[in-house]
Design a protein around this nucleic acid. Structure first.
Lengths: 127, 127
DNA sequence: TTTTCATATGAATTATTGTTCATATGTTCA
DNA sequence: TGAACATATGAACAATAATTCATATGAAAA
């Protein structure tokens, strides 16, 4: 994913490019952003995030709800935990997970809005 | 990515699960959401989206700005176009791209906020 | 302390995806 | 028309990432 492109490109509008270059976020921040969105880019994780904004659930509950293995859920929860999108607390043997970030709900809803508008043009069923 | 899990899970709290199940969005919408976020989950596309909220740019400009091949940019632009996140207009030989959705800017900024808060706890440089 | 239960994790496998190279399409200008 | 230029696209390859299986950890109950 990182070899030197041999088909290099030279800008057609160098002045504009220079101006934009000054406005771009630092590469580090771009990577962080992409990494964060990667977490929303998988249907299993989206469903986990959705469920956890509605209730505090244990791993087995999530596995049953989503119809995937306990292991798969656990692996995904670790990713979400590392990014501080979900938190957990232990009660005896059971570990309860819940949403740890109000942004999640907001972002999800904005995304759903975009989808509505996008499909709206072709006047499909939206419900 | 879709085989039947042999390590099946049974819920520990069936009543709660049933309640949540009723609140979950349709599978179709979940998949659409994940697909939409996939578009934000790549640093090249994030940079394209960022740049296009600042100015209208042609393919060569973007390639030069990002330091990637014209082909790579073009492939990515197609994905963004299909999702109606960017639009384009042709002027002679040149095709100008620009942002086609105000949500993009909003979502990006919310995500950046989350990152700030996430890192804030470890008091790192944020600038 | 042994057994059982809930969760976590490592390694392997499979699926997905981004980039490259080569080439096609479409537009302008000579 | 043909040459030159800007962009688009198909196929192949390389890199990532999600799931599975097997097993480890950690807590409670017997």
């Amino acid at each position: 994913m990182s070899t030197i492109p041999s088909q290099e490109a030279t800008s057609l509008h160098p002045e504009i490019i220079e101006r934009i270059r000054g406005l771009m976020p630092k590469e580090e921040h771009i990577l962080d952003l992409a990494d964060l969105f990667k977490l929303f880019a998988d249907s299993t994780r989206v469903r986990i995030l959705f469920a956890l904004t509605k209730a505090e659930l244990c791993v087995y509950d999530l596995a049953a709800l989503l119809g995937v293995s306990q292991s798969a859920v656990s692996h995904q929860l670790r990713l979400l935990r590392n990014a501080k999108l979900v938190k957990n607390r232990r009660e005896g043997k059971i570990v309860y997970y819940s949403s740890d970030d109000y942004h999640v709900d907001i972002v999800m809803n904005i995304a759903l809005e975009h989808l509505k508008e996008e499909k709206g043009s072709s006047a499909e069923d939206l419900e």
